[in-house]
Write a protein that binds this DNA or RNA. Structure first.
Lengths: 408, 408
DNA sequence: TGTAATATGTCAAATGTTTTAACAAATTCC
DNA sequence: GGAATTTGTTAAAACATTTGACATATTACA
């Protein structure tokens, strides 16, 4: 039961029904391809005639193409299979991190083209925009005509204002009020540029993925543990943004209000217990707050090193990881109690050590979840090789074509 | 950008556009009444012709009625004002609490008819159902023909399974797996019975209210502080339910994982710091866990008494309230960081002492919110005399007529 | 091999919308 | 009393789904 917002509604026009059904058909082709018109008619519980009309429009627009004929054992006319058409146009995905910036070109339905390239992230906004523009141009020249690029999706580790395209605050990049969208949009005239926060992008990457693990769910939480803790929440197939686009900051929900100081200034945030920095500090037996800010990006000893040591039976490393695991679980329990998601995705370096920590995480979750069902909430690891941020950047560009139209 | 769920979508039919626009028109009449067809055409940015058609359908169905002609100073034909039609049918709202059960009859658009009645809550499910049925019948006989009752909305302080209508766990009532819906539905054949958790119902009461404070918002959180802490979250005009209908349990997010034991078994839950019981325990200088369970419902000294003492300058009472205020604010900061709502509503006895605690609550919120904007998130008190739970029960019955149709 | 059975896909008419344009109705201004 | 203005209605056009018939293509089987 959804309330209609009397200040912000969308009337249905003569074409709304068609628009809705078109998007449903597209979505079904995307998740069920290869699929015939008759299959779609059954899935959509409508007539084949209607499907023919919808599909002919999609084919005319170049979004769908007919492929080979199906081979089924039954008798009757063979179906012509339908496929999404990658349409000879491409998308660019960019993942900006403090250490490096990653870039990937995909076709219009999000399949990777060529290699993922990376280059150092310039901290000066002007220089950053220059170098990013150069890299995008280079990639487009290599893998496509820049003329048919449908968009550039950029993922930023920070809070941003989506309307103005301004990065309000990106701690690891030391950016405040940096206007990225405008200069990039000017640089790439006619190509849509999308910006998104990295936690939210990771969540997007999961709901828009069409991979092995069955169909992507619509109510999920993505927790990304790295220098900080990023969280993206999806409810009803839509990212939760909140009134100021800052929703999802579970990283600063406290485990103990008198706990260690967090980079945000408050004490005892979840992030202060489970970030890579927190784990490392625990290993070195020092207080997180002791680390000087400059040391953040020139980490000589990384969490990956710590995990390696844990694997070679360094008991201090194991202890540090185990503590992190327990705190991770305790915080996840809060998220699960609060949002009751169908699944929780976890990304970040800690996933490389999942076999070492999983049972502790699960125990801690059960310790604080309110019902046994909540304690069993499925958790899925997203390893770094799946590039969730980059996949999220892809979704920014390619997903709108499949999204539900706004109605009522 | 909402993803279409390929396993659970709704096709648009020939009549979908009409259905959507009908509901928009209804919503606008509800929030702007009295309003003319021409006004609606302007609000909806469509032609008067279209409005005429939509409205004539609504009038035929008895949902809308024409009223007096408008008196405007400008020249031109006078508009005929449209009103929601209360339609000679009624709704019953029930608020079940451990101490008492409250009951109210309203017209079909949620306006109170007669008085609010209350009666002792029977703890035995069988007896409860019997006594509730009697009271509903009595009220209906007094205020309406039972023949034209459109529904009964019942609010329960506990976790429930909406599909089966079973109360899974209501601690204060000491209920487990009590099937309420089935016997009541049998008792009131043909009348729809709705069940809802009290935290979620309170949130519903606010988004569906049409009162002085401008139009109701669509992204809000309702925090109800009483024996326990109930939270209802609304995102995009829709209650957040989660995979098991248990979303919203921010009451059990910890302030300190080593804090006082909570009724849920875990330590340091927000609820263990701010529930009425916690405040009282603080006043009496004892540990919350010391209180025996039996004492829960036979509280000889209530939070209202404590507030009264604080008002007559009992310094211990003031201190206890001030502590609660601070913890309340610290927990609210977590909710605000996580959900970034447009507004937070607070209900419960503590609202009676709001002038004593407001500034401390606000300070604590600012202490832990991530941005200054979040620190300024508006907070509105909902005093007991507004009966938020009962209003939520009303919305369960009367709101579906105004809700957006499910599309895509 | 030919015919029946069956499944896919298309076409055209029927039906229910919004949209457009014209018009009737009612009121004020001058 | 007529022009101007606003409200509300009507009828035709445009555009969608829906329905039923039909062409197309393939297999099963006598």
């Amino acid at each position: 039961m959804r309330k209609i917002d009397p200040n912000n509604f969308t009337m249905a026009t003569r074409g709304t029904s068609r628009e809705v059904n078109r998007q449903i058909a597209l979505t079904l082709i995307r998740t069920h391809q290869p699929v015939s018109r008759a299959d779609l008619a059954r899935l959509m519980e409508t007539s084949r005639a209607n499907v023919t009309l919808l599909i002919s429009e999609l084919i005319n627009e170049g979004l769908v193409r007919e492929g080979a004929q199906g081979n089924q054992k039954l008798r009757g006319r063979k179906p012509t299979f339908l496929y999404l058409n990658s349409q000879n146009s491409v998308a660019v995905a960019v993942d900006v991190r403090a250490s490096k910036t990653f870039l990937m070109v995909t076709d219009s339905i999000g399949r990777q083209i060529g290699d993922i390239v990376s280059f150092p992230t310039k901290f000066d906004p002007q220089e950053f925009i220059k170098s990013l523009s150069d890299q995008i141009r280079k990639a487009l020249n290599q893998y496509a005509d820049s003329s048919n690029c449908i968009g550039v999706g950029i993922v930023i580790p920070g809070v941003l204002d989506r309307k103005s395209g301004v990065v309000l605050h990106a701690p690891t990049l030391r950016w405040r009020d940096v206007n990225l969208l405008e200069p990039l949009q000017r640089e790439f005239d006619g190509i849509e540029v999308y910006l998104e926060n990295s936690g939210k992008a990771c969540a997007l990457s999961q709901i828009w993925s069409v991979r092995g693990d069955g169909t992507a769910l619509s109510d999920i939480v993505f927790v990304s543990v790295s220098d900080g803790v990023g969280v993206g929440i999806v409810i009803n197939g839509e990212i939760v943004r909140g009134a100021h686009n800052t929703a999802g900051e579970f990283g600063h929900v406290p485990l103990s209000i008198d706990g260690p100081q967090c980079s945000c200034g408050a004490n005892g945030c979840w992030e202060a217990y489970i970030s890579n920095l927190a784990t490392l500090s625990r290993y070195f037996g020092r207080n997180v707050a002791d680390r000087k800010p400059q040391a953040l990006d020139i980490a000589e000893f990384t969490i990956d090193d710590l995990i390696a040591r844990a694997r070679s039976n360094d008991s201090k490393a194991i202890t540090a990881l185990h503590s992190t695991a327990r705190y991770l679980g305790l915080g996840l329990a809060s998220i699960i109690n609060a949002m009751d998601p169908s699944r929780v995705y976890i990304g970040g370096e800690i996933t490389e050590a999942w076999d070492l920590v999983e049972s502790l995480v699960r125990d801690a979750i059960k310790e604080r979840t309110l019902t046994s069902e909540l304690g069993e909430t499925p958790i899925r690891i997203v390893p770094a090789v799946e590039y969730p941020r980059l996949r999220g950047a892809v979704a920014l560009v390619t997903a709108p074509a499949f999204a539900a139209p706004k109605v009522a």
